[in-house]
Design a protein around this nucleic acid. Structure first.
Lengths: 357, 357
DNA sequence: CTGAAAGCGCTTACAG
DNA sequence: CTGAAAGCGCTTACAG
């Protein structure tokens, strides 16, 4: 009549349960359940009647109760290292989730995206109704992996630094970074600025072991081979947004004489590189005539840029689908611990050239 | 000792429950629950001990049981009109989900993405553990809305054609389409090709009532004002991918003499427009010298294109965050039915000009 | 073909 | 400060 009734909508009061439907149809709750899940167990007539009444009352089996009973959610969880808004803003994650989505579509799973709770990816788990988790961007392991295994929740690590018996997929970051730096030094660049990603929230003073660390070692190797060291390059780390790339790019070049400026900017992410290129343009600098720029990822969007960006391709979508495949296996109880390291490819395009004279 | 045991990981057997922890700690299950949820109810010492044992056994309260008991999931559902992979491939949805994500981050919700089940968005609901749903892209209503209300599940419609007492958010599609066509006719274009989106899976012979229909009416109006009719234009509808835009763009221009070709291409989606521009370039046609092209959406990515695309901006992220705000209100039982129609803005840039002589 | 009962794993009044 | 009991809403052997 009022208050609580209108609150819940016209049907008045709480959502109907199988008990309500059973009462209205004059059958047991089992019969209601059978009508929905196991038609053969009741007569066609009864089933029709039950379904009709259910429809009329707006009854639908409560998914939560169903999942609890079944012990499964038919949902794949993705444990994100960042807030949802930041994640969806990053085209890298769109590609990655596209790969995960392919497998979900094929297997009939929904996709649950879970950001860190109070800066902890681990703390998100007890609030997430999923059959298992893809754990992204765990740059450092301060016990998360041990903890995750102890809980006996199926999971796969992406781009981490996992022990051999944890399913994981990553790419050859070392090689990717090596290739791109070598490309620059072979063109003759000696003053190189590295623009890298800020490590995620789970990072502590332990230092990180993930893809960023592997890229650093690839860079080191390429520098050494060219007779350079880290003293010859500058390194900045920023969050992965176009705007941060813009600011960082600007900072490296504004108020500096041509002699002080780097001749090449090696960026560890396309999103950042796009911002940096915009900054250079706004400063009146030409790419690649005045400065060469490289990216990392090869997002499909960069093909719309002019000049076309020289970058390291990593198979992001495949990374996502492989991770999801591994997770499905783990959920099904197949006791394997597959490792997959995907190859990267240097895509030489128009944003790199010899340094200016 | 083997088989089932190894399956579940080293801890052997099933995941521990509060009962197991209680037994190990020599307390009741209530005490275990209090240790996690209501520390004040038990002594500090007992709590420490329980938590220690839980940690050791790898116990974490089962999220599903918790949710069932609490009657809420702290998860926002998004009912998608397409498969997950297709959705994540579309930058439009990334922007939209970014808006939804902002609200989830603020309110501490996770995000559950649910594709249609057997081509039905409605059928996805009984399998989705969420507190409410944002319903996207329901181009036509063949009873879904009635059905949704009957179930007393909180929901909000985005870009639909809702009755007045259903919360919804949309944009002024009619006006957006009107503006862009008027822009073209005022430049002098008389042979215009419209490249539109294919309606979603829920569409039947009823015809659609959503944004596409509103855009068509805006187009009609602008054409009329310019002394043109639908006989003067061509309309094609394709799925929303860059590749389909490429193909459609090519088809409109290949093997046609300059007299037969449209001088302007009005595309109802930036993603499609990007593909179409690529096709024109590959055919050796210049934009805007040979043909003008317009988009719709104003995705951030189009700012990387050259020439810069003239397009209709719609506030996609705001659409997402507003929808999520409305949904949160509905979940909290605030019995309102807010409507929001967001404004569009024509962004005139470099891809449109007068038709060639 | 149908119903009564147990149980999924948790939380929370209610007693002590 | 702690425990025994009921209940969230469903499904599924088990009896009839």
């Amino acid at each position: 009549m009022s208050g609580t009734e209108t609150r819940r909508g016209r049907s008045g009061g709480r959502r109907p349960t199988s008990k309500d439907v059973a009462a209205a149809a004059g059958v047991s709750r089992s019969a209601v359940s059978f009508a929905f899940n196991d038609p053969g167990r009741i007569s066609e007539a009864t089933r029709e009647r039950i379904l009709g009444i259910a429809q009329e009352m707006g009854y639908t089996p409560n998914p939560l109760a169903r999942m609890l009973k079944a012990g499964q959610t038919q949902s794949l969880g993705v444990l994100l290292p960042q807030a949802l808004a930041r994640t969806m803003e990053n085209p890298y994650y769109s590609r990655f989730l596209m790969g995960v989505g392919q497998v979900c579509d094929r297997e009939g799973f929904t996709l649950l995206l879970t950001p860190p709770v109070r800066d902890s990816m681990l703390k998100a788990i007890p609030y997430a109704g999923a059959d298992g988790f893809i754990v992204c961007g765990l740059e450092t392991d301060r016990g998360e992996v041990t903890e995750l295994r102890r809980r006996a929740v199926p999971f796969v690590l992406v781009d981490g630094h996992p022990p051999p018996d944890v399913p994981n997929v990553g790419v050859d970051d070392r090689r990717g970074a090596y290739d791109v730096i070598q490309h620059l030094t072979q063109l003759g660049h000696r003053r190189i600025a590295i623009l890298s990603l800020e490590p995620g929230p789970d990072v502590t003073e332990h230092g990180y072991h993930g893809p960023l660390a592997r890229r650093m070692s690839g860079i080191t190797e390429a520098l050494l081979e060219a007779g350079l060291t880290w003293k010859d390059v500058t390194l900045s780390e920023v969050p992965c947004t176009r705007m941060d790339g813009y600011r960082a790019g600007r900072e490296l070049f504004v108020d500096r004489s041509p002699e002080e400026r780097p001749t090449a900017l090696a960026v560890m992410s396309d999103v950042l590189a796009i911002g940096a290129v915009d900054a250079l343009r706004d400063l009146g600098l030409s790419v690649p005539e005045d400065v060469s720029v490289t990216g990392f990822d090869d997002l499909p969007e960069v093909s719309w840029m002019r000049p076309r960006l020289t970058t390291v391709r990593q198979p992001i979508t495949t990374k996502g689908s492989t991770a999801a495949d591994f997770l499905i296996s783990a959920i099904r109880g197949e006791d394997q611990h597959p490792h997959q390291r995907l190859a990267t490819t240097l895509m030489v395009r128009d944003s790199t050239d010899q340094p200016p004279r």
